[in-house]
Design a protein around this nucleic acid. Structure first.
Lengths: 206, 206, 206, 206
DNA sequence: TATGAATGAGGATTCATTCAT
DNA sequence: CATGAATGAATCCTCATTCAT
């Protein structure tokens, strides 16, 4: 947790520090990121850094938290609040879509998230928490969908919740990889949703 | 490419170096991995390391190549050779299953592979190649499945090939995360395959 | 260019660093000189070195510049300012003499300069600049001497300017070689000047 | 002194080693030159190197000796043998000219010689010897010239002999610096001789 | 005699963190 | 609180030389 000194900072300065940190962590892995570079870019003294944060990890966790929070905010809040008014697949589409909007708005944040998502070994405990949250969310969603008769009851909800989490991340990677195309991104989501929805099997075989 | 001196080493010693490298790279990120630790654990002089490898990256690439090769070897070769004799989903199941067998055999290798899978920024060019190979493989498989009438022609093959690659990785992560359970791993794969196969939609809605 | 941290250092400490560097560079070639030895002798931490200088080369260039500047300072400034009031040979004598005074004052500086003078291959760009400056100076001096009718018009000024530069260096080497004799040094200069004088002066004046 | 094993080598192999050494020493300073590079380029095993030479310095001294010998050979032998049949300045011109022919034939050798000439500090003892030889030669020449009445008796022979040595080197540097022009090189020598001639010759002859 | 693997001392550089002002 | 100099552990890599085969 950042120290009070950090939270007492004028907003503008606080923002400078956050921005610098995001830039650095987006470009280099956690271990490779340099406190010096962050302090420099933020225009603060290296010593001040340690007046604001316990150490590098402290800042890193804070940034991760921020990202998680920001990502949540990208989800259509109306839909979230009236979640029962929507079908499972409507919600799923919005979740994936929000991920994409988020990534497009600030690709740096996604780059950091991506790093986390994979380097579990490295960030044990940090990333796990967020994953877990996502699982929970999907689990609840799946249960609701199942209760509503929208989903195949034979599906293992534990597995499916994890799969949906991963597929969500994968969509982001797909879009990121395709360069920075913004035009067809939602089309990609829809293609993925289509597959997840209808399965791969040909209609004839169903 | 490791130097000839490395390949000329007695197998036992060569193996010690490889093992030490795998241990180190599995535990720490590429940047964080220490040549010294590898040399020490392998029981060779630091100087010898550089007689065997150009530099740290040289060794890393070699290990990555080794992993890729080893992973391929885990796929049922009979099935690969008589690929036309099997349905799309049979092949898909074997592919995912082989990934799991591989990961179970030596989780360290998977940890390294995982690292690669995500740190695209860092390993541009290394990881991309392997991804691309996987895409190509799945693309061909999907085309064949489509021609055979097994798959929904409405599916976008480009997207699906990437999705299947990602889902394959995800399965591994799922299993890895669940600890080292070996008992139910194939059950997880089957659950995933089931979802991918039939989709999430309830039969009633089809 | 050394960093500000260096220039902000207390004079005493700054001097310790400079002295240590001069000692090391005078004793060993640039490549052979050790940052560690310099830091140790200066009584600073190895890390501090890099807070003061970009790298070893940065310090080296700084020292070279310092030497060049110091060498200039040894030339009689009155003479330089009223250069027209003196004959070509008076100026030449002062130039050579100043070189000698400089070398006597701190033979380490000369040793470093010498190194530069020859290892053109290594220090391309560093040394060339200083040579060029010297050429220019002598060229101007020769032109003035020629206009004044002091010099033989048959002399090739380009060649002569270079020759005088080299002979200047040679004088230094002569003196250096003779051990550290200070008594007869000016006599040596005069002997050399005597030879160069007859060689350069106009027939009319012979 | 190289070991007998070296001298017993087939000429072709011996030559390969010498060539490789010359290449390396011409390109890098003594300390920076790498035994490995020499062995590699010569196509011999690194271990063999130490079967031929005591150590790096042993080879270096040998190469230096070779260069000195070769340089001597470039001087017109007829002229050397009938030295009394020529004037001082004829001999001087030939000496400088031979230096240039030598440098043009194999600039690598000159590069190495140059290195020696200046880094006296570094190569104390090695270079001094050769210098001394040159002084002796010039001293004898000057004495003869003086006896013959060709030279100004007021000249200090010690100084002049050193000056002539240095000027000889300087000529080479001048030519080397001017790029690799071969056309006008002798013109440069003549320009220099012209200056030195007037400087040295007896008043009677002016 | 030839070989080339093995060695390890040594060197430059980076960076998180501390601390005195 | 802010500052930024000081520190030193840690890391990669080079290379002359030795030595067993």
């Amino acid at each position: 947790m950042p120290k009070d000194t950090f939270f007492n900072l004028p907003d503008e300065k606080k923002q400078r520090v956050i921005d610098a940190a995001i830039d650095e962590f987006a470009e280099r892995s956690y271990h490779d990121a340099r406190v010096t570079a962050i302090a420099d870019q933020a225009g603060i003294a290296k010593g001040s850094f340690y007046q604001y944060f316990e150490d590098k990890e402290d800042l890193f966790r804070y940034i991760i938290d921020m990202i998680a929070e920001k990502k949540l905010a990208y989800i259509d809040q109306d839909l979230l609040e009236n979640i029962e008014a929507h079908t499972f697949f409507e919600v799923l589409r919005e979740l994936y879509a929000s991920g994409i909007r988020f990534a497009q708005e600030d690709p740096r944040l996604m780059a950091i998230g991506m790093q986390l998502a994979s380097n579990q070994a490295l960030y044990y405990g940090i990333s796990i928490d967020y994953m877990e949250q996502s699982y929970e969310f999907f689990r609840a969603l799946l249960e609701k969908g199942m209760d509503a008769g929208e989903l195949d009851p034979a599906i293992d909800i534990n597995i499916a919740s994890r799969l949906l989490t991963m597929v969500g991340y994968s969509s982001l990677e797909l879009i990121f990889e395709d360069g920075k195309l913004d035009q067809d991104d939602m089309a990609i989501v829809d293609d993925i949703i289509y597959i997840m929805k209808n399965g791969l099997k040909s209609k004839a075989e169903r």
